[in-house]
Design a protein around this nucleic acid. Structure first.
Lengths: 186, 186
DNA sequence: CTAGAATCGGAATCGTGATTCCGTTTAGAG
DNA sequence: CTCTAAACGGAATCACGATTCCGATTCTAG
C-alpha cells in the first residue's frame, strides 16, 4: 500500500463520500451500476472517483475490505461477551442482517474463500482468525456443535445472507442457526 | 408463446446447441459472459443465437425455465417414493448439487420469489406446487419440522446452493438439512 | 433434382460505461 | 494575502458487447 503523505482535507472528505455512495448505490442497483451514478450520488465528478480508486474493481475491492474489517471488529467485540453461545448467534445474525438489500455481502464474503487477492487476503485472514476464536468459545460453552469448523461457518454466513433475497424475514436464518446448535435433549 | 410451425431440422438442432452452450458458459464465466462466447462454444454465429433468442435476457430466461422445469419434474419424481422423508432430503441435496459451478441456479431460483415474470411465472408456480406436496409428505412422515413452509424451503435451497461457492463439500448443506429435521430425542 | 423459404454466419452498427485528460478551482504553507 | 501543488469536474476517448442486417447456404416440399 502506497502510504503517501496525508490527503488534503477536501480529498479526505470526498474519498469518504465516494465510498459511502458506492456502498449505497451498489447495494441498491447491484455491482453493475455505473461509476457515473456513484459519482452523482456522492456529489462529485467521475474524475474524482477515479483519482481515489484507479478502477471500478479497486473501488469494489475497497468496499469489500471495509465490510470485512467491520465484520472482524464485530466478531472480536462479541468474543468478549460473558455468554459465548449467545454471542456467536448474535454475531451470525448481525452479519446476515448487515448484508444490504442486494448481494453485496455475498460478494464480500466470496473473497474470504475464493481468489486469494493481494488487498483482501490480509483482512480475510483477520476475519477468519476472529471468527475462529468466537466459534471455539461457543463450542466450549456447549452451544455449537463440535464438528463445525470456521469454513463451515463462513459458507453458512454466505448462504444465510443469500436466503434473504427470497424471504426478507429471519425464518430461514433460524433454521440454519438450529442446524448449528447442539441438539437439546427432548 | 408463439408456437409457429415446427422448426427446420437444423434449426432445432442449433437451438439445442445454443442452449447447452449457454448453460455451460454462463455456469463457468457467470452471466456476464458474452453472447459471442456462447455462439463460439455452440459452434454457430451470433446471428443464430439471436434468431433463436431475441435478446440475451431471453436466453437467460430460457435457461431458467429449463432449470426450473427439471426441478419440478425431479420433485414430482421424488414424491412417489415410499420414504417421504428420505425423498425430501434427497431432492434437496440433488437440487443443490445441480447448481453448477457458479451461481446459475441461484439466479434461477431467484425468479421463484422475485419479479413475477411473464415467462417464468407459470414454471415457478409449478415448482412451488410440486415442492409443496413433497414437503407436506415429509412433514406428515415426521421427518421435517412442521413449522417450515415452502417459502422457507425455497430460500434455503438458494442459500444452500450459495454455500458451495465457499465449500465444495456437503458439510454446510448437512447443517441446513439438520436444521430442517425434526429433532431426535436424545 | 430444383425452386423458394428458412437458416446461417459474421461484419457493421449502436449504445453504454470505464478510463483518460486537461483547463479550472481550492487548500494551506509561508 | 499570495502562490503552488493538490484536487476537482466533466467532456472526450476507447473498448467491449448486444443487436441488426443482408448476402451466402442449406433444408425440404413437390
Amino acid at each position: 500500500m502506497t502510504t503517501g503523505r496525508p490527503l488534503r482535507a477536501d480529498a479526505q472528505r470526498n474519498r469518504g463520500r465516494v465510498l459511502a455512495a458506492a456502498e449505497q448505490v451498489f447495494a441498491e442497483r447491484g455491482t453493475a451500476a455505473s461509476i457515473e451514478e456513484v459519482a452523482r450520488t456522492a456529489g462529485v465528478g467521475v474524475g474524482t472517483v477515479f483519482r481515489h480508486f484507479p478502477s471500478k474493481e479497486a473501488l469494489l475491492q475497497a468496499l469489500v475490505v471495509q465490510r470485512l474489517t467491520r465484520i472482524a471488529a464485530d466478531a472480536r467485540d462479541h468474543a468478549t461477551s460473558p455468554d459465548p453461545g449467545a454471542a456467536f448467534f448474535d454475531f451470525f445474525t448481525a452479519v446476515v442482517h448487515g448484508s444490504a438489500t442486494k448481494l453485496e455481502l455475498v460478494d464480500a464474503l466470496a473473497e474470504l474463500g475464493i481468489e486469494p487477492n493481494e488487498a483482501v487476503a490480509p483482512v480475510a485472514a483477520d476475519v477468519t482468525e476472529a471468527l475462529t476464536a468466537l466459534l471455539q468459545q461457543a463450542q466450549h460453552a456447549g452451544a455449537v456443535r463440535r464438528d463445525i469448523d470456521v469454513r463451515d461457518v463462513i459458507a453458512l454466513l454466505a448462504g444465510a445472507s443469500q436466503t434473504r433475497r427470497y424471504a426478507p424475514d429471519d425464518r430461514p436464518l433460524a433454521v440454519i442457526l438450529d442446524g448449528l446448535r447442539v441438539p437439546i435433549a427432548q
